[in-house]
Every structure is written in structure tokens, then in C-alpha cells.
């Protein structure tokens, strides 16, 4: 790892003023530290978010649950207010990763095989930053790409709670990330389906399945649909065709279990 300094502010305002130059945010470090060890990044300074009390914790009001950007996966897993989201968090990595990794870090990183982006997009969440609120539909913009500006901090994520929801992932057994993961959420005004792990463009909504499931929320509604493998990932863990196949299978399982 290259040399760097670390600042540990206790407020979002102090974090913002600590940024600038070649500084980068540090969440739980569960993605960033391995990246730094490989010398794939060379920030002069890391601004740690772990000491900012305002970015921790979970609160619910009405049909919305708001999770601070610095909240660790283990706390979301233990919470249970939004059951499908807590269950998703309880299967991220392993217990030690869940005790450090944060929702803000996962959302900001937008790894194409990560779990939280599927929940945010599938639930139609709102990403709250130190500057503005961004709809999940506008936030995720391709592999590791988001709407965040340089140094913009994800301070919270607001999830509207659906009537029924479920996330099913087909685990890539070595990394424990999703080979393909599907988040299905049924709201009064329709169904949302978000797919992670499959596409070369990262997390996306499967609109044909959304239309079919909004008309009939059952796995049989998916039977006539086909998933094209054109833009799907091929790697040593699975071919594009295999991933396209899994998208439909995981969606059906999520609907059955929702």
C-alpha cells in the first residue's frame, strides 16, 4: 500500500472540509483496503466516516425506513424493520465483513455483483447525500459508476417499504458475492425487479418481468418471458447464457418466497 494519512472527523461538515486534493472517503474499508493493498488507488488522504454518529443507525417512519450511510451490514441484518433488506444484509460476505462494511460504501462503490444496489434499485430507494437526494433509478450508472460527484458523501439511504419483497442470490462460492441476484418488491402501484451480478452494465431493472408481475404476482407470470444473453457477463464462474438463465430462475424463486 502507498503511504497515506487518515483523518477521522466526527461530523459530516468536518468530513467535507477534510476532503479535497487527492483525498478519498473511507467507509468500512472492506472494498477499499483490498484495493489499496493492490495499489489500484493512491489517495494522499483517507477521510474516515466511521466516527460520524449522525451517519449511523436505522429509523422508520410510516412506510419508509432510513438507514445512515455509515451503518454496518450487521446492524441492518439485526434490525428487521424491512425484513427483505435485513435478510439481504445478513448474507453479505461473512460476519467479520458485516461488522465493518457499510451501506454507504456498498452503494457508492456499485460493484456489479453487489447486493445492496439491487435492494436500492428494486425498492425505488432514495440516496441521500450531503448535497441532495437522488432516486435510485438515476443513481446507478454502470460498472462502479454512480451519480455521485467527487467527494460527495452518501449520508443515508431511504427505502419505501413494499407490501412484499425478497432478494435471492445465487452465491459465487469463493467470493460470496452474487453470481446473479434478484430483488423483487411488490408495491400497491406495481412490482419492481432489480438484477445484480448479471449484466455488463451493472445492476438493472428487468422491465418485462415488472410488467408481467404487476399484472399477476406469481412465478407462472414469468413463463413466457425470455432473457437475452447479449449484454450478460461471461467469466470463469459462468457464461452469459448461464447468467441469463439464472435471472429468470432467481426471479421466480424470489416471487415464490416473497
Amino acid at each position: 500500500m502507498y503511504e497515506l494519512e487518515i483523518e477521522r472527523p466526527t461530523t459530516v461538515a468536518d468530513a467535507v472540509s477534510a476532503l479535497g486534493g487527492e483525498a478519498q472517503l473511507l467507509g468500512g474499508g472492506q472494498t477499499l483496503i483490498p484495493t489499496l493493498k493492490q495499489r489500484l488507488a493512491d489517495p494522499e488522504k483517507l477521510v474516515s466516516l466511521s466516527g460520524i454518529a449522525d451517519m449511523q443507525g436505522i429509523s422508520a417512519s410510516g412506510d419508509t425506513v432510513e438507514i445512515g450511510g455509515g451503518t454496518i451490514h450487521a446492524d441492518v441484518a439485526a434490525d428487521g424493520t424491512y425484513a427483505a433488506l435485513s435478510e439481504l444484509a445478513s448474507h453479505i460476505g461473512d460476519p467479520a465483513v458485516r461488522n465493518r462494511g457499510t451501506i454507504g460504501g456498498s452503494i457508492a462503490n456499485n460493484d456489479p455483483a453487489a447486493c445492496y444496489p439491487a435492494a436500492a434499485l428494486g425498492s425505488g430507494a432514495t440516496i441521500v447525500t450531503n448535497k441532495r437526494e437522488i432516486a435510485a433509478d438515476d443513481f446507478f450508472q454502470g460498472l462502479f459508476e454512480t451519480a455521485l460527484a467527487e467527494g460527495e458523501i452518501v449520508t443515508a439511504v431511504k427505502f419505501p417499504m413494499p407490501q412484499q419483497a425478497k432478494y435471492i442470490k445465487f452465491v459465487q462460492p469463493a467470493s460470496r458475492f452474487a453470481l446473479v441476484g434478484v430483488f423483487v418488491a411488490k408495491f400497491a402501484d406495481g412490482v419492481r425487479v432489480a438484477v445484480t451480478g448479471a449484466s455488463n452494465d451493472g445492476v438493472y431493472r428487468w422491465s418485462e418481468a415488472e410488467a408481467a408481475l404487476s399484472a399477476d404476482f406469481s412465478a407462472s407470470a414469468l413463463e413466457g418471458l425470455t432473457v437475452s444473453s447479449d449484454d450478460m457477463v461471461t467469466d470463469l464462474h459462468g457464461s452469459a447464457e448461464y447468467r441469463a438463465h439464472l435471472v429468470k430462475v432467481m426471479t421466480a424463486r424470489a416471487v415464490n418466497a416473497a
Binding site: 487518515i6 477521522r8 473511507l26 474499508g29 472492506q30 483496503i33 483490498p34 483517507l46 474516515s48 466511521s50 450487521a74 460476519p95 467479520a96 465483513v97 461488522n99 465493518r100
Partner: peptide, 20 residues
């Protein structure tokens, strides 16, 4: 794996300064 404030963490994936 060690415990930091009672929680199991991978000490190779945490900066010493974060345990101050």
C-alpha cells in the same frame, strides 16, 4: 480475526488508526 469493541473483524482489513 480479532474483536474490536466486542465485534469480530478481520484485522488485516482495518487500519490501526481506526482502532484508536
Amino acid at each position: 480475526v480479532v474483536h474490536v469493541n466486542g465485534k469480530a473483524v478481520k484485522s488485516c482489513t482495518m487500519f490501526a488508526i481506526e482502532a484508536d
